[in-house]
């Protein structure tokens, strides 16, 4: 197994400056996604095809009637057991040598299976127009700046973060760091926890949260949807096998008829009546 790399998001250090959002748009050449003002500091509802990371702002009343802003940098989780990779029929969603999940735009057929099955609602389709004016769709999401990783650089958001709230490195090291920091902040944030959900065998973007996941609007136990497992691990292979078996029976039937069924009535009747 190759070494996994991960991005630790320490929400307790984040001050909501959104430099990471800007850095991401900048590096990945993503157009702006203008949004209406919705009465909150939060800019977008969620990640989208052109907004690969964003900050959620949650107003929270913590113990002792203490008002808190909870900031969370959110992006693709890069699940170890990634639903998007599982359901993609074109092999466009794939794992990289870093253990992250990348999209291959040359292979993507815009079917949207990944959109419907991501347990975090991260990936989205974007409509593009080619030089002939034909429209086509592509699935887009955070790719952990895989091009930068291959050059030995850090993801753009990690590099820009001045609060040390985003840290990238070998997964094992990041997990150790998360534990270390958790111990440090336990007193100030008694509900603090590490969010690296086991239901999807851990994620390569994982969190040190100040409050329980649900407070941030995160699923407590995200998993690859059961329907996706039934579909890809059972129905599809079974269907292929069944098709194979029926075809074999037909071929077998055809051959044995040629061998043994010399006086078949269907053909005979035709011949006789011609005489």
């Amino acid at each position: 197994m190759t070494t996994k790399y991960a991005k630790l998001v320490d929400t307790t250090r984040c001050n909501g400056c959104r430099a990471c959002m800007v850095a991401c748009k900048n590096w990945n050449d993503l157009p702006v996604d203008p949004e209406e003002f919705k009465g909150s500091y939060q800019s977008h509802d969620k990640c989208g095809a052109n907004t690969w990371n964003m900050l959620t702002f949650t107003e929270h009343v913590a113990e002792g009637n203490r008002f808190e802003w909870l900031f969370r940098h959110t992006a693709c989780f890069h699940c170890t057991d990634a639903a998007c990779v599982k359901v993609c029929p074109a092999d466009a969603m794939h794992f990289t040598e870093f253990g992250t999940v990348n999209t291959n735009y040359d292979k993507c057929i815009g079917c949207g299976y990944c959109v419907q099955n991501c347990p975090f609602g991260i990936v989205e389709l974007e409509t593009h127009t080619d030089e002939n004016g034909t429209e086509y769709e592509l699935a887009q999401k955070c790719v952990m700046c895989v091009d930068r990783l291959r050059e030995g650089d850090q993801p753009a958001c990690v590099e820009i973060c001045h609060m040390d709230a985003l840290i990238y490195g070998e997964k094992a090291d990041m997990e150790a760091l998360a534990e270390e920091r958790l111990a440090e902040i336990k007193e100030r944030f008694p509900n603090a926890n590490i969010y690296n959900p086991v239901g999807v065998e851990g994620t390569q973007t994982f969190y040190l949260l100040a409050e329980p996941p649900s407070v941030y609007g995160l699923p407590e136990n995200p998993r690859v949807p059961l329907s996706a497992t039934v579909w890809k691990d059972y129905a599809q292979p079974l269907g292929k096998a069944m098709l194979g078996v029926t075809t074999m029976a037909v071929i077998g039937g055809y051959i044995s008829n040629k061998l043994f069924n010399k006086d078949d009535h269907g053909a005979d009747e035709g011949e006789e009546s011609n005489e």
Partner: peptide, 8 residues
Amino acid sequence: CGHPNSKI
């Protein structure tokens, strides 16, 4: 259409 006995 393949099986001779049902051809008809």
